[in-house]
Design a protein around this nucleic acid. Sequence first.
DNA 1: GAATCGACCAAAAAACGAATATAGTCGAGA
DNA 2: TCTCGACTATATTCGTTTTTTGGTCGATTC
Lengths: 189, 189
Amino acid sequence: MEKKENIIESAQKLFSRFGFLKTTVDEIAKAARMGKASIYHYFKSKEDIFREVVEKERQILSGKTREAIERENTPQDKIKAFIVTRMECLSELANIYDALKNEYLEHYAFIEKARAANFREEIETVKAILQDGVNDGVFEIYDIELTSFAIITALKGLEYPWTIEIPSHEIEKNIDKLLDILFNGIVKR
Amino acid sequence: MEKKENIIESAQKLFSRFGFLKTTVDEIAKAARMGKASIYHYFKSKEDIFREVVEKERQILSGKTREAIERENTPQDKIKAFIVTRMECLSELANIYDALKNEYLEHYAFIEKARAANFREEIETVKAILQDGVNDGVFEIYDIELTSFAIITALKGLEYPWTIEIPSHEIEKNIDKLLDILFNGIVKR
DNA sequence: GAATCGACCAAAAAACGAATATAGTCGAGA
DNA sequence: TCTCGACTATATTCGTTTTTTGGTCGATTC
């Protein structure tokens, strides 16, 4: 399966640079040093190639996020690790970012599936951390599923397509403040 | 100034329906029962018309939000009133929604200004409520500006262009849960 | 003088048809 | 089995023409 991996690697680079729509199968073939028609021996379609590239990046994202979480001890630090690692990875893995965010890709069924799966995975990850926190007596939460949902929603605000310029150190402070609010709330203790 | 108000009203309807870009000055003139050239006696440009329409809606939004907040007694209820009223109004006032969100309008300087002004107003509104809460001994907050910023960020998650379908009762529950987290946090008290 | 609008203009947008590019197929050859 | 040149239907791009649009100007009316 060396040829197939070679194609995936070439495609990953080109898709990252030019996006799914602007990258041609011919370009992928050339970068993989083969004829275009040969690509179809290994993949059913251009979409199939992209799906496998996105899956590869999803596995990288999952792996790094899991590692970062496992490196921490408190549920608070685990949540922070989840948020920070995820943001860092998404800014590097251009293809999965596209798959999740690019509105021009919305109408592809496989993109819809990838987005639903990603959302589910985020919820499950946060749920697991929250459950541990509750089991350890650190967190007090009555509806873990809904709380996970709310947290993911709040985090989406960090990804919001801000239409005004915000300095990046403000975003970091913002993350820390969001975490502070998440853990302690604003009502006097 | 009756003629000018008539133009604004006609324009508001047409802009709401077709958007700024797709509405022509000729259509506005016809709806206002005058010749196109007469519009330019009252307004400098098409952009000028839109600016005034957006300003009119901003005042409606501001007014309703302020009323809703003043109707409440506790800082918690005031924050909720702010969030709920704002979401309701934005879903009705199509022109200010466009001005704030539509990426095809981004390059107009007056849109940029409107967005910055709106953001500032949101921050100031939340800050005022938080300050009252602190003064009343209900909230305990060390950086009110940053906290306001974080809250607005989290609320942006509710406006996130979700690329997967979410039932609307889930969104309501999500608001309540977000408020619960905002007030009480998740760390055991 | 203020308000109105038909005629006009430059530039932008839309429409159109021809040319080119693209994803995918097929069959011959190694 | 793997490779790829030749091929096809369709999509995209391109250049040109036509139409539309925002805005201006000057004559007319009140």
